[in-house]
Amino acid sequence: MSRESDVEAQQSHGSSACSQPHGSVTQSQGSSSQSQGISSSSTSTMPNSSQSSHSSSGTLSSLETVSTQELYSIPEDQEPEDQEPEEPTPAPWARLWALQDGFANLECVNDNYWFGRDKSCEYCFDEPLLKRTDKYRTYSKKHFRIFREVGPKNSYIAYIEDHSGNGTFVNTELVGKGKRRPLNNNSEIALSLSRNKVFVFFDLTVDDQSVYPKALRDEYIMSKTLGSGACGEVKLAFERKTCKKVAIKIISKRKFAIGSAREADPALNVETEIEILKKLNHPCIIKIKNFFDAEDYYIVLELMEGGELFDKVVGNKRLKEATCKLYFYQMLLAVQYLHENGIIHRDLKPENVLLSSQEEDCLIKITDFGHSKILGETSLMRTLCGTPTYLAPEVLVSVGTAGYNRAVDCWSLGVILFICLSGYPPFSEHRTQVSLKDQITSGKYNFIPEVWAEVSEKALDLVKKLLVVDPKARFTTEEALRHPWLQDEDMKRKFQDLLSEENESTALPQVL
């Protein structure tokens, strides 16, 4: 008996699950189920560990084997000379395990699969056993689809999209007709009724959600790893209520002995410091949205989908001078704002400069500016000194954290500008005749005249004003913003236009 009217009423009120309206889709043409990776026989039982391990490696599972009696060998002398080797079968990115008779397991190899009674669906509900069930008529011709799209860092995100009359449910929550939600590992998919569980979705590319604290899981769906560094790992996640993407940084307390840091400095109150950081608001710094204190720290951040500045300059790639100017102007505005709010970044580098898009002209935002507030000064500097390429001379020669101030950030900005303009770092371990530390503390950077011949004198002058060993003589952010190279009204107008595109209400910060 159909429950279409009941569920449609529920759909009209929406769902609290991570779902959002989605535009129309072009329906895929039908194809045989076997060619799409559906096993030839149905099963109602969950797999054992041996079955799972075989399939996850990209080899055929026991459900897909063919009797050897149906095959015969071709003698080598009868092999056609022009026969080309077969292409290897792509490894599946996800697996659906059937929970009921009449449904088959599915190895997801393609990027898009339609499910329903219509014969054009890649996964067609046409098993005779299924057709005899009382629920068969409640399934729509095109009930739902599972697909994946390219996300940040060229990774993939799996989604389920509801197109049914009676509802598609993920972990008992209604997706909603015309809406989608991301699928995470071990999600249970039910059709027409929330208790009519048909599939379990296994994402073969992500970790299980159960490793994360419950308070975090209640608000966010964790997904793929976006990156990792000395101070922690960053994962893509989704807000459950809105389906908006965020980035979540995970900082290990054990790695940084944060408990010991608190004992050594009783004034170090991470929760208080995070609340201060959350109040920071500038178009060129990453917004801190939320914070969870569990076995590790979880910092929920605004997501930038254009990648890191590092990706644009790695491998001796240089940027156009006009692009360097647009990016560097924004970096200076961001660091100036942090300094005005009493925050020294201490870890400025291309990896911590994020881009809003893949376009050459785009907004940038500074991230990882609050680590000293979370990890403690000593722990952070011990970590950073392991990779000193961007560290100021006074940091390398000081004991502990004494003896330096916000000028350290201006040195790091000078190193970043040098790399963007030239395509190579000013200080490098590859210069074996002088140690990296000695290069930095003496201010002897690697200047290649033929490379810098293409760079304007004004740009080079600003680099020199920032890479000054004496912090008292080094340019401040205010002085850098007043430098002739940055007195470019076309560049500032472009920045204002980019801000307006992102948010019509965002105004250009005042600069002296």
Rank of each mutant, 00 (worst) to 15 (best):
P85V: 11
L96W: 01
A215T: 11
E188K: 10
D111H: 10
A158K: 14
N112S: 12
S50C: 04
S210I: 05
L193D: 00
K249Q: 02
A261D: 04
V270I: 13
G227C: 12
L106P: 05
A98V: 09
S39W: 12
G259K: 13
A190S: 06
A267N: 02
Y113M: 09
G58A: 13
S155K: 14
S32V: 09
N171D: 05
D218Y: 06
E4P: 06
L268K: 12
L106Y: 11
R240D: 09
W97P: 07
R148I: 03
P90D: 03
L129A: 08
K244A: 11
D162K: 01
T242V: 07
E84Y: 13
E107H: 14
I250T: 01
G167H: 00
V234I: 06
T43R: 03
T242E: 07
E127D: 07
F238W: 04
I248R: 02
R262G: 04
D101R: 15
K179E: 02
E161R: 04
C243L: 13
F169K: 00
S56N: 11
S52Y: 05
Q10G: 12
C121T: 14
W93H: 03
G30R: 05
Y139W: 05
D118Q: 13
I160K: 02
V234Y: 00
D101P: 09
E84W: 07
F256K: 00
I221P: 00
A237H: 00
W114G: 14
L193M: 02
K135R: 08
G176C: 01
R262W: 11
Q69P: 04
D6Q: 14
I74V: 07
L99G: 04
E84G: 12
H22P: 11
S24C: 09
S19L: 07
K131F: 12
P47G: 09
S40W: 12
I189A: 02
I157S: 02
V234P: 00
H13E: 07
P128A: 05
S31G: 12
N166C: 02
D162W: 00
D118T: 11
Y212H: 12
S155V: 09
Y156M: 03
R240H: 15
H163V: 06
S53R: 07
E81D: 08
T205R: 04
S15Q: 13
C18P: 11
T272L: 06
T65W: 02
R262I: 08
K135T: 08
S52L: 06
N166A: 07
H143E: 00
K141S: 07
S40I: 08
Q36P: 09
D203Y: 15
E81L: 11
S155D: 03
D101G: 11
A264C: 07
V234A: 07
G227E: 15
D111M: 12
G176V: 08
Q20A: 09
E81V: 09
N112A: 09
L174R: 06
D203W: 00
C243N: 01
T242M: 02
P213H: 07
S33V: 09
T138I: 07
V175P: 00
N269R: 14
K244L: 14
G229V: 08
P88V: 07
S16A: 05
S73R: 05
K177W: 14
R3K: 07
M222Q: 14
A158C: 08
G165W: 05
S194M: 01
A190Y: 00
A237R: 00
S67C: 09
K245C: 05
N110S: 10
R262H: 02
S16C: 15
G229M: 01
W97D: 05
Q78G: 12
E86L: 06
I251R: 08
L204W: 00
Q27Y: 07
P266L: 14
S40R: 07
D82A: 12
H54Q: 13
F169Y: 05
E239L: 00
I250S: 13
G176M: 13
V206Y: 00
S32Y: 07
W93M: 02
S12W: 11
V270H: 14
S40A: 10
G259S: 07
A267F: 01
T172P: 11
D126C: 15
E4K: 05
T138S: 11
K249N: 15
G165L: 15
G14A: 15
P85I: 07
Y159I: 13
K214R: 11
S33D: 12
Y123E: 15
S16L: 10
K177Y: 15
E173R: 03
G14W: 02
Q20R: 08
V234R: 00
Y159R: 01
K255G: 02
G229E: 05
V66N: 04
K245I: 14
Q100L: 15
K135F: 13
K179W: 08
R181D: 05
E149R: 00
S15T: 06
E76T: 13
K245G: 05
E84Q: 03
R180F: 15
E84D: 13
I160R: 02
I258L: 12
P128N: 05
Q34G: 05
R254M: 00
T68W: 13
C121H: 06
G178R: 13
A158L: 01
R181V: 03
Q78F: 13
L236A: 00
L193I: 08
G165V: 08
E127G: 10
G23K: 03
A91T: 06
H54Y: 12
T138Q: 02
V211R: 05
E173Y: 15
Q36F: 09
P47C: 03
L63V: 07
K119I: 12
T172I: 07
A264K: 13
K142Q: 10
F115Y: 02
A91G: 07
E76G: 12
F115V: 14
T26S: 09
S228C: 05
K255N: 05
A98P: 14
V270C: 09
E233G: 09
G23D: 08
Q10V: 06
N166T: 02
K197G: 12
R181A: 09
D118Y: 12
E64I: 04
L204M: 15
L268W: 11
S32H: 12
V170H: 14
Y139I: 01
A94F: 11
A261N: 00
A158N: 05
Q83T: 12
D134L: 12
E173T: 02
D6C: 03
E107Y: 15
E86D: 05
M46R: 07
K245N: 13
S55R: 09
S223I: 10
I248V: 07
P75N: 04
D218I: 08
E79F: 14
V170F: 13
I157R: 02
S5H: 06
I251S: 03
N185P: 08
K135E: 09
I160F: 00
Q27D: 05
N196R: 00
H143N: 01
K245H: 03
I248Y: 01
E122Q: 11
E188R: 11
I258G: 10
S15V: 05
S140R: 01
E271L: 03
P182Y: 15
E263T: 14
T225D: 05
P21C: 13
V270T: 09
D111C: 14
S57T: 11
E70A: 04
S12R: 11
S55H: 06
E161N: 07
E149L: 00
T65D: 14
S44P: 13
L130R: 12
K142V: 08
S2L: 10
S53M: 09
I38A: 11
D82K: 03
V270F: 05
Q209F: 12
T26A: 07
S55P: 07
R95V: 00
F169V: 02
K141C: 06
S164W: 00
S192E: 00
V234E: 04
T26Q: 06
F144G: 02
V270G: 14
Q29T: 07
R240G: 11
S228F: 15
A17F: 05
E79N: 08
R145I: 06
L183K: 11
A17L: 05
S120M: 08
S32R: 08
S120T: 09
L226F: 15
E81T: 05
L96I: 15
S67N: 02
D6G: 09
S67K: 08
R132K: 12
C121Y: 01
A9W: 13
I38H: 11
T26Y: 15
S44H: 13
W97Q: 06
G151P: 03
R117G: 00
Q83H: 13
V234W: 01
K119N: 11
R3F: 05
D6V: 07
I74D: 12
P47Q: 02
G23C: 05
E87W: 07
M222L: 13
N186L: 02
S210A: 09
S140Y: 01
E271G: 11
R132H: 05
G176P: 14
G227I: 03
D101V: 14
P47A: 08
D101Y: 14
S5K: 14
R180S: 15
T168K: 01
I248F: 11
K177D: 14
E70F: 05
G229L: 02
N154L: 03
A91Q: 15
Y156H: 06
A267E: 15
F202R: 00
E233I: 06
